[in-house]
Design a protein around this nucleic acid. Structure first.
Lengths: 334, 334
DNA sequence: TTGTAAGCGTTATCAC
DNA sequence: GTGATAACGCTTACAA
C-alpha cells in the first residue's frame, strides 16, 4: 500500500495525498477528509525510507557514549532520549568504549545512517591533541554536534557542561572548613572535566594554605573493591589523609567501603565526598555528600538548543551552569 | 557527491559502483580498486536513505524499555547495542514508561522509522489480557519482535528469559535451610516474571512446611528510603520476619538499609537476598547475596537468534536459561 | 565482467 | 486547490 494506491482509491493525485500527509494548508477540507478516510481504511503508513530520501532527514539523532551502563551516562541517555522523543526525534544509541580508534570506528555507524546531529555524552570524547580530535571536526562539517560535559572550540560544535572546577572547589572548601587538613583527591581520568576538577581541588587547598610537598591527588582504579584496596595500600605506604574528595560517586563509595573495612568513623575520622549525585551516593551507608551536576538540566538544555539550531536560530557555542553541593552523611556540618 | 559522480570519475557505470559498494563478487579486482580509490579520494559516503529505500531496510533495530536509567535495563541495553553493532546493526532506543498508552504511542516512533525488528526489554511489556497485548501482535505482523524477560505465545514473537521461578525457589530454599523460619517476599510488580518469582517463593515455603495463614508477600514501594520505611512499618504492625527475599536488588538494598537503621545484625538476625546481581548488590555494605540472571547471556543470545532469523533460519519461540545464586554477605553459609 | 534502465515511495516544482 | 512530473540516490534485473 503506497501513495499511488491511496491516490487512486481517493480519486486524487499523489501530490494531494502527499499534501495531506504533510498537512499542508493547500488542501480543501473536503478532500483532506476523503484522503484521510482512505488512509485509515487501508491502514496506510507512509514509507519512512522514501520519505527520508525526499526530505533528506529521518528526524533521528545519534547519542554516543563510552558505556551506556554507567549509572551517570545511563541517566543522561534517558533524559536525552526523552526530550528528543518529545520533539518528534528518534535516538540512535552507540557505545564506543574509551579508545580513540573505537570511537572513530563506531561513529561511522551513526554517520552511515545519516543522523541529523550527534550528542557526545561524557567528557572523554575530547582528546588532548588537535589531530586526535579530528574525528569531531570532520563530523561537525556535516552535522551539528554537541559535547555534553566536554568542551572544544570549533565551528558547529556546541558544549553544554557543568562548572566542575567551581563545584569541586566549593565542596573541597567545605571539607577543609570543617576541620580536615589532609585531604586527598581521587580521580580516574584527566579528561577535560577531569582536569577542571583537579584544578578545583588544588586551588581550594592553596586557598587554605595547604602545602603540596607530597602528592595528594591519585589516579585510582575503579570498582568498589579496587578503590578500597587502593586506599588501604595508600595508608600502608604512609600517606596520611583525613578526607577523600572523589571525582565521582563510585570512587567515593569505594572510599566508604575502605573506611568501613578499616574501622574509621565517617565523618568523624574521615570525610568523604562524591560527584554526580548518582545512585552510588544514596546506596551507600552512610549516604555520601556529593555534587549534583544537574544531568537532567544539561540534557534538556542541550536538546532545546539543538531544536533551535534546527530552526536555523543562532545558539551559543558554550553553555555552562553551576552544580550544587548535596549534604549527606559523609561530611561534618558547619 | 553521489554514485553518478563516482561513476564518472572512475569511468564506470553506476551499477559497477553499486556493486563495489555492496562488495559483489562480480567485479574485477582492477575496477574495484579503481572505484574504491575514487571513493576514498572524494571521501564519498553512500546516501543511507536512498540505500534503505532500495533495500527496504536500514539495518537498524529498535530497543524498547520502560526506563533506560534503571541499572538492570541499562545493562541489557548496553549488551544489546554492543551485539547489534558487532553485527552491523544500529540501535534505536525508545523508553516508554510503564503505562500501556505510552508504550503503544512511543512504539510508533520506532515503527515509523521502519526498524527491522524490536527488542522489548523487561517483563513489563506483557500485559494481563489479550487485547492489552494487541500492540505486540500487530507489531509482530510486520517485523519479528523479541521479549527479553517476558513471554507470550504468538507468531513472530520470540522470548528469551531466565527461569525466575527456579531461581527464587533455589535462593529461598537456601535461606530456609540455614535457619530462617519467617521469610517475607518483597516485590514491586506482578508482571509475567513477577508472578513466576512469587510462585517460586511460595513453593519453597510450602516445601519447608511453612503455613501461610498470614500474608508473607508484599508489594513494596521502590527507592531505598521507601523500602526501609515500609519494612519498619511492617514491623510496627506486628509482622515478624527473619529474612527478606526481594524481587530485585534495589528492594534488597532497601532492606539492608532497614536492618542497619534498626540495629538488626545481618545475616545473624536477618537474612536478605536480592535479584539481578546488579550494582545495588555490591554497593551495599554488607554486600548482598543475589541471583545472577545472566543479562549478558540473555542479550547475546537474543541478538544471535535475531541474526539467524534475518537469515531465514528457524529459531525457537522460547529460550529459557537458569540463573545462579551468588553468595555474598547477607546470608548465612550452610 | 560491465552497462542500461527500471524501479523504490516519497517530496517538491511547476503549471493550470 | 489540484495534478503532472521531475527529482532524491540508490539496488537490481536484464542485456550485452
Amino acid at each position: 500500500m503506497n501513495i499511488y494506491d491511496i491516490s487512486k482509491k481517493a480519486g486524487v493525485s499523489i501530490a494531494t495525498v502527499s499534501r495531506v500527509l504533510n498537512n499542508s494548508s493547500k488542501v480543501s477540507e473536503q478532500t483532506r477528509r476523503k484522503v484521510l478516510a482512505v488512509m485509515k481504511e487501508n491502514s496506510y503508513t507512509p514509507n519512512a525510507f522514501a520519505r527520508s530520501l525526499g526530505l533528506n532527514s529521518m528526524h533521528t539523532v545519534g547519542i554516543m557514549c563510552a558505556d551506556s551502563s554507567d549509572v551517570y551516562l545511563a541517566q543522561a541517555i534517558y533524559y536525552l532520549e526523552r526530550e528528543l522523543r518529545n520533539n518528534g526525534y528518534a535516538s540512535m544509541l552507540c557505545c564506543t568504549g574509551y579508545q580513540l580508534e573505537e570511537k572513530e570506528k563506531y561513529l561511522q555507524l551513526l554517520l552511515s545512517r545519516n543522523v541529523d546531529a550527534i550528542f557526545f555524552v561524557g567528557s572523554n570524547f575530547v582528546e588532548d591533541t588537535d589531530d586526535r580530535n579530528n574525528y569531531l571536526y570532520t563530523t561537525a562539517n556535516r552535522i551539528p554536534i554537541f559535547l555534553l560535559n566536554g568542551h572544544i572550540a570549533a565551528p558547529n560544535i556546541y558544549s553544554v557542561l557543568c562548572d566542575d572546577y567551581q563545584a569541586i572547589l566549593d565542596i573541597t572548601n567545605e571539607v577543609l572548613r570543617t576541620g580536615s587538613h589532609q585531604p586527598i583527591y581521587l580521580y580516574r581520568s584527566l579528561s577535560y572535566s577531569g582536569r577542571r576538577k583537579l584544578a578545583g581541588f588544588t586551588d581550594a587547598c592553596l586557598e587554605h594554605g595547604l602545602s603540596f610537598e607530597e602528592e595528594r591527588s591519585f589516579l585510582c582504579p575503579v570498582s568498589l573493591d579496587n578503590t578500597r584496596e587502593f586506599l588501604s595500600s595508600l595508608e600502608a605506604n604512609g600517606v596520611v589523609f583525613d578526607s577523600v574528595i572523589a571525582a565521582d560517586d563510585e570512587l567515593a563509595a569505594g572510599a566508604v567501603k575502605y573506611a568501613l573495612a578499616s574501622g574509621k568513623s565517617i565523618p568523624g575520622q574521615i570525610q568523604i565526598t562524591g560527584y554526580n549525585n548518582s545512585m552510588f551516593s544514596t546506596c551507600s551507608t552512610p549516604e555520601i555528600t556529593t555534587i549534583d551536576n544537574r544531568v537532567e538540566f544539561m540534557c534538556t538544555t542541550a536538546v532545546s538548543l539543538l531544536m533551535q539550531a534546527f530552526q536555523h536560530k543562532s545558539i551559543p557555542a558554550k553553555t555552562t551552569f553551576s552544580g550544587t553541593v548535596v549534604h549527606r552523611q559523609t561530611t561534618r556540618p558547619f
